[in-house]
């Protein structure tokens, strides 16, 4: 479905980004794996992707730094000459309450989680010129619901979703589809570190959804792949929520069989 396409997935050494990179590779796309801190993990992801018979290229860049974003896109330009898909997945942040949130954490989180989409899109659009493309941002339910200690990331994700809408409209005439995928808590290394950081209570409070299990990285990757397909051509500026129903159940939920 994506054979011959070139996709950049930011923050794809591990977790949700890795699952997205693998899924797009299975669909036939060549993949640029961007990482910042985990080289070994990024190289492992590249190795796993190449086994699928497509090209994988690893590029290190802190997407919170505009110069590093420019260097990454210069490398993409010289290596591939164009880009078809940008998945803005890289994210960072620290648990803080509103009253403890200092400018250092605020700026770090906003730069990596939100500004990076704007700067990556500005460069990506030039590589999509005349051929169209897909841009997908990865966000979380913490943008609209309040998660404990999640203020910096939650606000950055709300910004990311607003940016997604503005980009979707401005880039529509260029045949570029821009959307977001919003996840509830996903049990990746980062997700579990947040959940077990003492803010969410015991495991039973967050380890399930109305759908009966937690959302997996692959659940997110499947929706990203759909948004990158031509079948999703008329979806623009939307945030597709993948949460097993959690956000629709403000009073919690119990599992009961039919007829109970």
């Amino acid at each position: 479905m994506l054979r011959g396409k070139v996709a950049l997935v930011t923050g794809s050494s591990r977790g949700i980004g890795r699952a997205i990179a693998l899924k797009l590779a299975k669909e036939g796309a060549d993949i640029i794996i961007n990482f910042f801190r985990r080289r070994e993990a990024a190289e492992q992801t590249a190795e796993d992707i190449e086994k699928l018979g497509v090209t994988a290229k690893v590029i290190r860049a802190n997407v919170g730094n505009p110069e590093k974003i420019d260097e990454m896109f210069d490398t993409i330009l010289s290596s591939f000459g164009h880009l078809d898909i940008l998945v803005n997945n890289a994210a960072s942040g620290l648990p803080r309450s509103a009253l403890d949130l200092d400018t250092k954490v605020w700026e770090w989180t906003m730069d990596i989680n939100a500004r990076a989409l704007l700067l990556c899109a500005q460069r990506a659009v030039k590589l999509m010129e005349g051929r169209g493309g897909k841009i997908v941002a990865i966000t979380s339910l913490g943008s609209s619901l309040v998660w404990p200690g999640y203020i910096a990331i939650g606000v950055s994700k709300a910004t990311l979703e607003a940016l997604t809408r503005y980009l979707a409209i401005e880039l529509a005439p260029k045949n570029i589809c821009v959307n977001a995928v919003g996840a509830s808590l996903v049990p990746t290394e980062v997700g579990l570190a947040y959940a077990r950081g003492g803010q969410l209570g015991d495991d039973s409070t967050w380890q399930t959804t109305p759908a009966g299990r937690m959302v997996s990285p692959e659940d997110i990757a499947n929706v990203v792949a759909f948004l990158c397909s031509e079948e999703a051509f008329m979806i623009r500026g939307q945030t597709v929520i993948v949460d097993g129903g959690t956000s629709s159940a403000p009073f919690g939920f119990t599992h009961k069989g039919e007829g109970d």
Partner: peptide
């Protein structure tokens, strides 16, 4: 130092010395 301090120190060292210090 909190975890953000540490990452920022590592990044500053990488830029200063032109090396890479992965988390691993």
């Amino acid at each position: 130092a909190d975890s953000l301090d540490m990452v920022q120190v590592l990044v500053a060292l990488e830029d200063e010395f032109g090396i890479e210090i992965p988390d691993e």
